[in-house]
Write a protein that binds this DNA or RNA. Sequence first.
DNA 1: TTGTACGCGTTATCAG
DNA 2: CTGATAACGCGTACAA
Lengths: 352, 352
Amino acid sequence: MKPKRPAGIQQAGAQPVTLRDVAQAAGVHTATASRALNPKARQLVNAETVRRVVRAAETLGYQPNPIARSLKTSKSATVGLVLPDLTNPLFPPIVRGIENVLEAAGYSALIVNTDNDPDRERALIESLRSRQVEGLIVATARLEHPLLRQLQEQDVKIVLINRRIENLQMPFVVGDDATGIALAVKHLVDLGHTRIAHIAGPQITSTGLDRSRAFRHAVRDYGAAEDPALIVECAHWSEGDGAGAMRELLDRGSGCTAVVAGNDLIALGCYDVFAERGISCPEDISVVGFNDMPFLDKLRPPLTTLGVPHHELGAEAARMLLDCIEEPQRHPRSLLLPVSLVVRDSTAPPRT
Amino acid sequence: MKPKRPAGIQQAGAQPVTLRDVAQAAGVHTATASRALNPKARQLVNAETVRRVVRAAETLGYQPNPIARSLKTSKSATVGLVLPDLTNPLFPPIVRGIENVLEAAGYSALIVNTDNDPDRERALIESLRSRQVEGLIVATARLEHPLLRQLQEQDVKIVLINRRIENLQMPFVVGDDATGIALAVKHLVDLGHTRIAHIAGPQITSTGLDRSRAFRHAVRDYGAAEDPALIVECAHWSEGDGAGAMRELLDRGSGCTAVVAGNDLIALGCYDVFAERGISCPEDISVVGFNDMPFLDKLRPPLTTLGVPHHELGAEAARMLLDCIEEPQRHPRSLLLPVSLVVRDSTAPPRT
DNA sequence: TTGTACGCGTTATCAG
DNA sequence: CTGATAACGCGTACAA
C-alpha cells in the first residue's frame, strides 16, 4: 500500500527511473536487468532478454545512478586535478586536454587550486580522496615533495604533469625543457649574442632546475659567456619575481644583451622593467620566454618563446592515469613531449 | 570467521575507516556515532558520548564516505559548471570565484566546456545530471535557450552567469553592461570623438544585445553620430570575428575615429587589422575593449577597457546557487555587478 | 538519550 | 541463463 511511485505520473517532477523500474517493465529481475545493461556482463544473458531490457530502459529513459554504482564498486569515475592556480594561462589548455580524454572514458575531473600553499594542498588532496577520486593528476610537484611520496606509498595513483619529482618512480608528462632552452640559446647565439642572461624559475621545481641546467650546458656548447653573474633565480614563476630579477641583472651591470626567461610570465616581468627604465626590446635587450601562452603575439613587442603542446600534455597525462587505474600492475611510463621555438620580434641581433 | 578487517593492520594499504569502526571504538552504535558526528543531530546525543565518538573518529582518522551519504540523502554536494570554453581568459577568474565559495560550503564543481555546440551542451548537461549535481551554473546562455527553459521546468536549480535569458525568471549574475558601455562612450566623447563605431558581439546573447543597445543610447545621450554604418555585428566573441568586422568598418568608409568593441577579444581583432593595414592606434583610431582580461596592459598599445569583477561574479553566482539549493522556495534574485573604466593607451583624442 | 531496523540503487555471488 | 539475496556506508524513522 502507499505505492512509492504513483502510476501514470511519468513526466515533469518525475522521480528518476531506477533499475527496478526497468526490470519490472521488462518482466525480469533487477539482477538480470543490471547484467543486460552492463556491457561487461551482457554476454551472460540471453540475447532476446537483453533486447527487452534495453528497450524498456530506453522507453523509460533510464539513467543509471552513478552514486549507487560507486558505492557498490568503490569506483567513482572521477579523478582529481591538482593545480597551483587555474588563472595561470598555462593551465586552461592542459585542463581541456585532460577533460577531452576523461570525457571519452566516462570520467570527470575535480579541479583544485593550491596557490602553492602546502597546507592547502594537503587539505585539498584529502578532500579529493574523501570524494573517492580514483587517481590524481598533479601539476604542483616540487623536487622534494614528501606529501606525494607518502601518497604513492598508499598506492594512490598519480601522474605528474609539467613537473617531475627527483629520485622517485612516478609517471610524468613534461615538455622537453632541455631541448627548448638549447633551441633558445642557439637562436640567440646565431643572432650574434655572446652575453646571454638567464632568469631561472624556482629551483625547487624540476622545470626551474632542468631549464637552468640546460642553460648552463647550452651556453658552453654554443660558446656564449659562462658567467655566474648572468644567472638570477626567481622564487616564483611570476611577473613580479621576473621583474625583480631583471632589475638585479641590470643593477649588477651584467652587461647582457639577451635574456632567456624561465617562462613567459617572467619574460613579462622583464617587459615591465624595460618600460620602467626606458630600455627598448629587442634593440637593447632581446628576450625569450617559455610556454607560448595565449596572446603573446599581441605584446609589445611580440614575444619569442618556446611552444609547448599543452593540450597534448594534458591528454597524455589523462591517458596515462587511466592506464594506471585499469592496469595497476603496469610499469610506470613517462613522456617527454617536443617543444618548438616560436620566433617573434623580441629577439634581434645585439647593438653593434 | 574470516574477519573482513584484520586486526592490527591500520596503516599503509589500509581499508578506509568507516562509521562502524568509529562506533565500535567508541563503544556505541553506528546510529549514535552518526548523530554525534552530524552537527545537525548532535544535540540529540549526550555531550559526553559526543566527545568519545569525536575522539575516536579523530584518532582513527575517520573520513565520512560522501558517496554513501549521497546515496542516502540524494545530495551530491556537487554542482555543474557549464562554460563555452575554459581557455577563454574570461573564465578562469570566474571559476576560482565559484570554487572559493563552493569549497567553503563543502561543495565541488564539475566543469564542462560546450564549445558553443548545442548538441554537446545537451549531452554534457545530461551527464552532469546523471552525476546527480544539485544545481547548475551556466555561462552559455543565449537569449533563446529552449534547453534551459526545459530544465527549469524540471525544477533543476540554475544560476546564469555573465548572460541572461529573455522573458524568463531565472536568477543571474552579470556585469553592468549598459553602464560600462556608457562609460566608454562618454570617455571617447570627452576625448573629442564624434564618429564612434561599435563592433557588437553576437546579438543572440544578452551580453551582445545589451551592450549594443546601450551603445545606441549612449551615442544619442552624449551627442555622437547616430549612423547605422557605424555598427557591425560579430557572429562570435572571437578575435577572428572582430578582425572581420573591423575590416568591414574600414572598407565601407565609415570614417570612424574610435571603436567600442563588444569585448577584449574583439578589440584584439581590431589590433590585428591595424597591423595589417598600417593603421596606428590610438593616433588614427582609438579602441575600447570590455572585460579587462589579464595582460591587456602589456599589449601594443595597452588596451583601454572595462573592468568586470570576475572573481566576485563567480562567487556571487555560487552563493546564489547554494541559496537556491538550501531554500528552494526563495524568490529568485539577480545581481548586477558594477564595472569600471580602465583607461590605458589605446584611447586618445582624434587627429585634428 | 540510545539502539533497532530499514532503505537509498546498484552489483556480486550464490543457487537453481 | 536467471532469480534470490546480500552488501556497499550512511542516515533516519521508530521503538526502547
